[in-house]
């Protein structure tokens, strides 16, 4: 079963995403900060990570950059959740190595379809 790591400091959103992804048949690891996300990514090796950009201490962008820097985790697909629509945030996310981004507020349905699109693209 495909494992997806979800990192968001807002518990409601974390639960929402986890619930929707589990409904879509994915195994979800939900964490509340960047440090935990890094640890889980290293130990559990998820196929994909959904990272909130604005988390205290380690931001989603920092986590993404560190995942890409480590060969063991460099292959993990990353989707960023951002509350900002400004171009520099999006560019920052992509330059850190994100595969896609979704702006808040997002539709859970849309998030799932984007994840599935990414997964099917890499599988193919």
């Amino acid at each position: 079963m495909t494992v997806v790591l979800v990192a968001d400091d807002d518990a409601d959103i974390r639960d929402l995403v986890a619930f929707k992804l589990e409904q879509a048949g994915l195994e979800v690891i939900a964490v509340e900060d960047g440090q935990a996300a890094l640890e889980q990514a290293r130990t559990r090796r998820p196929t994909l990570a959904v990272l909130d950009v604005s988390m205290p201490a380690l931001s989603g962008i920092d986590v993404c950059r560190m995942l890409r820097a480590d060969p063991a985790t460099a292959g993990i697909l990353v989707i960023m959740l951002t509350a900002r629509v400004q171009e520099q945030d999006v560019e920052g996310g992509f330059s850190a190595g994100a595969d896609d981004y979704v702006t808040k507020p997002f539709s859970p349905r849309e998030l799932v379809s984007r994840i599935q699109a990414l997964l099917s693209r890499t599988r193919a």
Partner: peptide, 26 residues
């Protein structure tokens, strides 16, 4: 404005997301 919009977006995400889950009969 930036902070307000960010702070408003987070609760809005939850509201819109959960409403969608309900409407999608999830």
């Amino acid at each position: 404005m930036s902070t307000v919009s960010h702070e408003l977006r987070t609760p809005l995400t939850s509201i819109a997301g959960y409403v969608e889950l309900l409407l999608d009969s999830d």
